[in-house]
Design a binder for these strands. Structure first.
Lengths: 125, 125
DNA sequence: CAGCGGCCTGCCCATCAGGCTAGTTCCCGA
DNA sequence: TCGGGAACTAGCCTGATGGGCAGGCCGCTG
């Protein structure tokens, strides 16, 4: 079980900075138990840059708990009716929250709102 | 050559699978030149899961050039009217392409389509 | 207590979205 | 030369969407 459960972990390095990528490749190249992915190879995990955009601290967009609930459902393509049903509220209330979301996310519509939220890291697609 | 000039690379492990995350932590913990990030710490790079849940490679979805045009505009929250105007086509044609997109992306609506496309890496939000 | 913000509901209404069928060109490959 | 796919246009129609307005309930705080 132990050996079968521990295949070599394939790591893809997806970092724009050549210097950093190279350094990581060197460091990880000698680690047994994992290996670097060939270009285009399906990797188990990926190494991505994290300090570049430095995560728009805008993540502090203050959404109420309910708004976050609505937002994730919206991101799944749920209609107001579906949101209402899944949250146990009325369609009117769902629309209320959606409207509030559009306002806070500075979006023109629900599609735009989801895109903005994803860009800001408020939600994970 | 790199030891003096290269600060330790801080790696954040952002993987849902506890077993995999733990294994990676063990493997990377002993690598000199990098160290794991403390929870909430700003890391240089992040390790994220890559084994696609549905393993749909980007190339699997063949969108026509026009459909890609429409898709990116949709991702920006553009309405059919806006898409039509920016692409110099009629609203009917815009809707035609959107419908085709919904079909190919297996989405129920434009919001869902954008979310799917983003998830699949067809577009970058 | 009074005020406030979050949450919920209702109704009206203009617009948009998406599904339908049906037609046109252009261009590529059999 | 013909078939077929891509791109484009069009009409019609139902349901969804989003904005505006007004109200009620609850918990917290000045």
């Amino acid at each position: 079980m132990s050996e079968a459960a521990s295949p070599v972990i394939v790591v893809a390095i997806e970092i724009a900075d050549p210097g950093l990528a190279d350094r990581l490749a060197s460091l990880l190249g000698v680690v047994s138990g994992l290996r670097l992915a060939a270009p285009g190879e399906a990797a188990t995990v990926a190494l991505i840059s994290r300090d570049a955009p430095t995560a728009v601290d805008v993540s502090d967009i203050d959404l109420t708990p309910r708004e976050r609930d609505v937002l994730v459902l919206m991101a799944e393509g749920a209609s107001n009716k579906a949101i209402a049903r899944q949250l146990g509220i009325s369609v009117h209330t769902a629309k209320f929250h959606v409207a509030s979301l559009l306002d806070k996310l500075d979006a023109t519509g629900r599609t735009d709102a989801v895109a903005h939220a994803a860009r800001l890291g408020v939600i994970n697609l």
